[in-house]
């Protein structure tokens, strides 16, 4: 039988250099517990987004926040690809959007800056003991329609947030997917 501890162990990266715990411990699980994210922690998680750097400080991001049990949670779920069904157990689903345009005109850094913002959020969440799992696998046209998201706002990721769940009693398919190490390229930098 696979337990959550087994998974946490498998996900421990083999490090080439020391990094902060939140980055070391972070991974994207497919099993979340029923436990809620408390309001105070959630405020900090969103605050982390606010302090993300962005090109010309344009802050081209916006998040729709669906809480489990809330009105639109099911609607967000219904836009996800089938293999992302595990997201139903997350405490929150955030629909992360970039703003393709603002009063200064077209923004070529929208996606990049949203990526930074979500990483900040993920790190802050991890530091408070929550896990996150991002998803690009969802129907973007459908979510625009369902949530009435209009230009220049573009839904780009759905972020599941919650406490990690108990792996000892979940679908084998989730265990097969998550009981794997975090593989990475060996070389990603070069001195010139």
């Amino acid at each position: 039988m696979i337990t959550t501890d087994n998974i946490l162990n498998v996900k421990k990266p083999k490090l080439k250099a020391e990094i902060i715990d939140v980055l070391k411990n972070r991974f994207s699980p497919r099993v979340f517990s029923d436990e809620e994210v408390n309001k105070k922690d959630f405020n900090s998680i969103i605050e982390a987004v606010r302090w993300t750097p962005s090109s010309s400080n344009r802050q081209p991001w916006f998040f729709y926040v669906a809480k489990k049990g809330g009105k639109e949670f099911e609607k967000v779920l219904s836009c996800l690809n089938k293999d992302n069904y595990w997201a139903k157990n997350a405490s929150y689903l955030l629909v992360g959007c970039y703003l393709d345009e603002d009063e200064k005109g077209k923004n070529n850094y929208g996606q990049y800056d949203l990526g930074q913002a979500v990483m900040s959020l993920v790190v802050q969440a991890q530091s408070l003991g929550y896990y996150t799992h991002q998803m690009g696998g969802f129907n973007k046209d459908m979510i625009k329609e369902v949530l009435v998201i209009k230009f220049p706002v573009f839904p780009w990721v759905v972020v599941a947030i919650g406490k990690i769940g108990d792996y000892s009693n979940v679908d084998q398919i989730l265990i097969d997917k998550d009981n794997k190490e975090r593989k990475r390229k060996e070389i990603i930098s070069q001195k010139i």
């Binding site: 080439k16 250099a17 990094i19 902060i20 990483m119 690009g136 390229k185 990603i188 930098s189 070069q190």
Partner: peptide, 22 residues
């Protein structure tokens, strides 16, 4: 340490579409 942090970032399909010259 900083490149190790960059290396472990999450990415869509785990493609890791980044490279750094320094």
């Amino acid at each position: 340490s900083i490149f190790e942090a960059a290396r472990l970032a999450p990415s869509g399909h785990n493609y890791q579409p980044w490279f750094f010259y320094w």
